[in-house]
Design a binder for these strands. Sequence first.
DNA 1: GTCTATATGCAGATAGAC
DNA 2: GTCTATCTGCATATAGAC
Lengths: 189, 189
Amino acid sequence: MATPREAFIETTARLLELQGYHATGLNQIVQESGAPKGSLYYYFPDGKEGLTAEVIERIGASLAGHIRDQLAQVADPGQAIDLFIQQMAAAMTASDCRGGGPLATVALETSASSERLRSACRDAYRSWQRAFADKLEAGGYAPERAARLGELIIALLEGAIILCRTERSSAPLEHLAEELRPLLRRMEE
Amino acid sequence: MATPREAFIETTARLLELQGYHATGLNQIVQESGAPKGSLYYYFPDGKEGLTAEVIERIGASLAGHIRDQLAQVADPGQAIDLFIQQMAAAMTASDCRGGGPLATVALETSASSERLRSACRDAYRSWQRAFADKLEAGGYAPERAARLGELIIALLEGAIILCRTERSSAPLEHLAEELRPLLRRMEE
DNA sequence: GTCTATATGCAGATAGAC
DNA sequence: GTCTATCTGCATATAGAC
């Protein structure tokens, strides 16, 4: 964390994933980032909303890249997606079922109250959906089918994350991987 | 809304769905409920958390009953679930994509910070999952398959709701209904 | 049962010195 | 760029009269 600006962004990203938007205060962000308190409004003149908007964009781009990297490691789309979900389940366990889905809480909290944050979340979700869809297309799926399945996969992942957090168990994600496995095989035919 | 107690519960249920937990203040609840301000802590000595816990239980039981009622109107489980999701999509449109998923936001906001609210949400989700699973079992699915598919359906619905709210469109729910249709047919065989 | 008044704390945001 | 001090407002919760 070189500059205070980066420190704010990285700390905010972590806190938003764990606590959501309204439960995360600027005081906590300043404190945990270790950045100078007086510089927050210098780097983010729009305050909390502006800072959050940039964090959402970062998370969106970062995770989209991560998805593409992971999916590129296995040729078959079905197997690649299967493996990706298994890794998400492992990460869920590692975070004691408190992390995962870095935007889900913020998206639900702000979609009705801030147009700026809603559209930022929307763009992030679209980029993740496209990452999956591109992999499926490269594996031979028709573009329209690939886009549909990409949307379905994002919905499944986000929903499974809600269940994992409320159950405090990674089982829903693991079940999801199992259920999707034969499904993506069958659709290849 | 006869008693102040009921007024608090119903108003809180509505606000939690639209705004989530941390964005909903007791002052707003009192004001919009029309109930006497001085009686909130009389009926809910545990304050906001106690009130919210009871609201979650109510929403859980109420929606579980609604799911069972709706699914009972069509004999075939696949068709019944298909119709149910289409009605959810219609309700999503009617609420201008601000409603639907009455617990999703609260579940994510509180699962890491309140054991009481987390377990209340968990029980609600389980009851909904069971409502779908029972319908599938009655339609001939093996109990283990029915339970798995029930979990899958809940995850899909909750995830689709997140996408609908961020996209401000009911399309994700409508797509979900279309994609699930052939899937539940195929699984019957 | 319901009231008003208030305690206490923290939220986001700003002003002006340095 | 960063500081301290502070403004304004609302949050949950409580006390004590009626």
